[in-house]
Design a protein around this nucleic acid. Structure first.
Length: 495
RNA sequence: GGGCCCGUAGCUCAGCCCGGUAGAGCAGGCGGCUCUUAACCGCAAGGUCAGGGGUUCGAAUCCCCUCGGGCCCGCCA
């Protein structure tokens, strides 16, 4: 890559230091303490005072340097936050002080040793006795005040976004904590996490185009999974009773504000329980997550609202009743496919002529009911037409035992009482495959073979992790909750 | 896949409508300053105006194509 004049200057500084016997990329910085501890010690002091206790060693990225002749203020930042360094010629020695001011740049990784202190203006600081370069930044950081704004650069070079934006760092930390909390909650509920194949001979469990690759060893085509479902159900056949997996799934489709080609899915299966049991689990889980979000993001109105909103029990509405009420008509399930298509198109849905009645019903629900579901709401007992792979409802004809939980326009859970009759499963697979259209599921013969050995009655659920994070943190774009979203290849810097 | 918008210095942005020598701030260079925190003051420097083609005496500016990105729609039950 061509070196900019700026980078030339910075590299020259590194070379100058090395020539003077100072390694610009040293190996370690032992005895380091976090900025948080130093801040706390410094905050106990009066302005202008110096902590008389032992000196401390801190480290972090140099964010800004304000020089005033024989004194200078440096903003250091580590994972715990910012910390000011107070550099003075009389503390450090005239020659080292002048040398470091000449050879340091914003963006450098620094170590500093000195006593906690408070500036005359009261800023918690370290009065530096000695400074050490821990890694020279040859390339400059983003602009100090405006940060990195260009949305393309923020995604392609996420490290720069993270350097510049505490908010971005906080959001991704929140994501980690949310996922950890989900694991902890499920562990306490008695579920065990498993790992099932990502490279699979048949990408099943959902309707989506897979990414396809090839195994040279097997001399076979393999697909990256589009869901986790069919392997977890095999484990129910095998005798595991409460299993889940959180993992990446892949769909070979366009991205947008709510879709990325690779995304994280939680799927969970629970033997000897039904979808009503699952509803309780969802309430307990989201109540925890709402409280967590409020703790993690005390300044985020959306996160605070989540804690108030996710208080069980969440209201339940019946899919058909809610839709009919909103539409002001009845007998939807008895309506002809042609009429359903007409209604859906009247509601603004652009549907292909061959769209199934189930798809029309989904579109109608999307249009009439979903926008009204701002608070956590369970939508119960979908028409069988919309959901071929759930178990038929034990009481309501033409329905299946299914619920979705909606919040702020996001579908945050989709659960069934699972189909476990192998003959019916095979029939439905064959219907889907025969259709050959958009809604096709891949036929997984091995899965049907597994069901023939008996899968206990069970409930299962899928939760899109990325969307959970979006909903809890009030983030409008999936790209802001995925560290490295998919982007088109571009001329990358040469090594 | 369709529509609209964006791409100017390392970063944040003016300039584009209405064509006439490419501008500022930050960062960097040189000089000054012992309490700043978007520090400040002075001086000098920094550009493939995303790329290609066209119109024109003359294009960052107007037109076409390509690349990349964003938003909306479609698709993703």
């Amino acid at each position: 890559m061509d070196e900019t004049p700026l980078e030339h200057e910075r590299r020259a500084k590194a070379l100058r230091l090395r020539a003077a016997g100072i390694e610009p990329f040293p190996w370690s910085w032992p005895g380091r303490v976090g900025s948080g501890e130093v801040r706390r010690r410094a905050e106990a002091l009066a302005p202008g005072a110096i902590d008389p206790g032992p000196s401390v060693r801190v480290a972090g990225r140099l964010k800004a340097l304000r020089t005033h002749g024989r004194t200078a203020f440096a903003d250091l930042e580590d994972a715990e936050g910012p910390l000011q360094l107070l550099l003075r010629a009389d503390e450090m020695g005239e020659v080292p002080y002048r040398g470091w001011l000449r050879d340091l740049d914003p963006g450098d990784i620094l170590g500093a040793e000195g006593h906690p202190a408070r500036s005359n203006r009261g800023e918690p600081s370290v009065l530096v006795a000695a400074v050490t370069l821990l890694a020279k930044a040859i390339a400059p950081p983003p602009e100090k005040f405006h940060g990195l704004k260009d949305p393309e650069e923020r995604i392609r070079r996420r490290y720069l976004d993270l350097i510049a934006s505490a908010e971005s760092r906080q959001r991704f930390s929140a994501r980690s904590r949310i996922v950890f909390e989900i694991r902890r909650a499920l562990d306490e509920e008695g579920f065990q996490e498993v790992e099932t194949p990502i490279l699979t001979p048949v990408a099943g469990g959902a309707s989506a185009e897979p990414f396809v690759t090839r195994s040279r060893y097997l001399d076979e085509e393999l697909s990256l999974r589009i869901s986790i479902e069919l392997y977890l159900k095999r484990l129910l056949v095998g005798g595991f009773e409460r299993v889940y997996e959180i993992g990446r799934c892949f769909r070979n489709e366009d991205g947008d504000t709510t879709h990325n080609p690779e995304f994280s899915l939680l799927e969970l299966y629970w033997a000897y329980a039904d979808y009503q049991d699952m509803r309780g689990l969802v309430e307990r889980l989201y109540a925890r997550l709402g409280r967590l979000a409020a703790t993690l993001l005390p300044d985020h109105p959306e996160a605070q609202a989540a804690a108030r909103d996710f208080v069980p029990p969440f209201p339940q509405i019946d899919f058909v009743e809610a839709l009919e009420a909103r539409m002001g008509r009845s007998g939807l399930l008895q309506t002809s496919p042609e009429a359903l298509g007409r209604l859906a198109r009247e509601a603004g849905a652009r549907l292909p002529p061959e769209a199934s009645p189930g798809r029309c019903l989904d579109k109608l629900f999307e249009h009439y009911v979903e926008p009204t579901l701002g608070r956590p709401t369970f939508v119960m007992d979908h028409p069988a037409l919309t959901t071929p792979l759930a178990k038929r409802h034990r009481r309501l004809p033409g329905r299946v035992e299914r619920f979705e939980m909606f919040y702020r326009g996001f579908e945050l859970a989709n659960a069934y009482t699972e189909l476990n009759d192998p003959d019916e499963q095979e029939l439905r697979f064959r219907e889907q495959v025969g259709r050959g259209g958009e809604d096709r599921y891949a036929y997984d013969a091995d899965f049907v073979a597994a069901l023939r050995h008996g899968m206990p009655p069970a409930t299962g659920i899928g939760i899109g992790i990325d969307r959970v994070v979006m909903a809890l943190t009030g983030t409008p774009s999936i790209k802001e909750v995925i560290l490295f979203p998919q982007t088109r290849r571009r001329g990358e810097p040469a090594p």
